[in-house]
């Protein structure tokens, strides 16, 4: 598997190749082709449910769930994609979802990475216990305490406002935990050096640690964004007014008591997945080895 590694294939060999070298090169390229083919097949397999979503979104409603599965829609109902904008308030839903996802992600990354610095780089009594408390709450299933939480937030007038979701999602222990673990792998020597230079702890966080944790921030950003974007139970419990609905909640309105518009739901789901896919495609380029580790040569 290591043969795929590009570093080994830097053949700047100027001398004419000997037959053995040619054979080795062929072998390498063949194995690389096989590797790519395997990857592509795996990718197609992984995408199968998504493909089914797209196909279903182009079907008539009663053709979505059939035995055996029907892979080619007949007729192809492009109309679903027009209907979903016409029949529902997609613009509002997308707007609300976007507002929530962006602001939750921003605040979560900000407060999470800030708190993580306290947990990871500062030493004070009670730190570890407090941290364990954070992690512990992740272990409690939300279904179990959502009613007490809802009553509480209702009493301070937050239910049925977008603020409720913001409050709910922003301060998750997940972000603190993720950032803290990442900070632990940033060598202490860097902050130490800055301290000697007279930099304050806030400065160290802002100027040194934060820029060095780009990959962690990228993954926290992506995951928080996706989780907020796809959250269903939170908005379900807290948001009632149609003008506050998020995409996931809105799509549920195609499920009536006795009937469901499955084709429209699938069309809506496809529309809902696309922005995430694009953001991911753009965001994943931040997963590159940062100077955090290459620049620690002392």
């Amino acid at each position: 598997m290591t043969t795929v590694s590009p570093t080994t294939s830097v053949d700047a060999s100027t001398s004419p190749l000997r037959p053995a070298q040619v054979r080795a090169r062929w072998k390498r390229q063949a194995s690389r082709a096989v590797g790519y083919a395997a990857l592509l097949v795996a990718a197609a397999g992984i995408l199968l449910p998504f493909v089914w979503m797209v196909i279903s979104s182009l079907k008539e409603n009663n053709q979505v769930f059939t035995v055996p599965l029907q892979w080619i829609p007949d007729p192809v109902v492009w109309q679903n994609y027009i209907d979903i904008w016409a029949k529902s308030d997609m613009v509002t839903w997308i707007k609300n979802t976007l507002i929530l996802s962006v602001s939750v992600t921003f605040l979560q990354v900000l407060t999470g990475s800030f708190a993580a610095y306290g947990f990871s780089k500062m030493r004070f009594p009670g730190r570890d216990a407090l941290f364990l408390l954070y992690v512990a709450t992740i272990a409690v299933p939300w279904q179990a305490y959502m009613i007490p939480q809802f009553v509480m937030l209702s009493n301070i007038g937050l239910s049925n406002t977008l603020w409720s979701i913001l409050a709910l999602q922003t301060f998750s222990a997940f972000g603190v935990f993720l950032m803290k673990q990442y900070y632990e792998s940033i060598p202490e020597s860097l902050s130490e050096a800055a301290r000697i230079d007279g930099m304050s702890e806030y400065g160290i966080w802002r100027r040194i640690i934060l820029p060095l944790s780009t990959p962690a921030i990228a993954s926290l950003t992506l995951l928080t964004f996706v989780n907020t974007w796809n959250d269903y139970l939170g908005p379900l419990i807290y948001l009632r007014s149609p003008e506050l609905w998020t995409l996931q909640l809105g799509l549920q309105t195609f499920v009536g008591q006795y009937n469901a518009e499955h084709a429209l739901i699938m069309a809506g789901s496809v529309i809902s997945v696309l922005p995430i896919a694009v953001i991911f495609l753009l965001g994943q380029k931040f997963f590159v080895r940062g100077i955090a580790t290459t620049g620690v040569k002392g």
Binding site: V151, S154, Q252, Q257
Partner: peptide, 28 residues
């Protein structure tokens, strides 16, 4: 006042507990 069709009782339970339920409600 609009509720979700499939999760009606969950939402109604929450609203009644918090005192934000409507004057009359359907027993689905």
């Amino acid at each position: 006042q609009e509720y979700d069709a499939s999760e009606y009782d969950t939402q109604m339970t929450a609203d009644l507990a918090a005192g934000s339920a409507p004057d009359m409600y359907v027993l689905k």
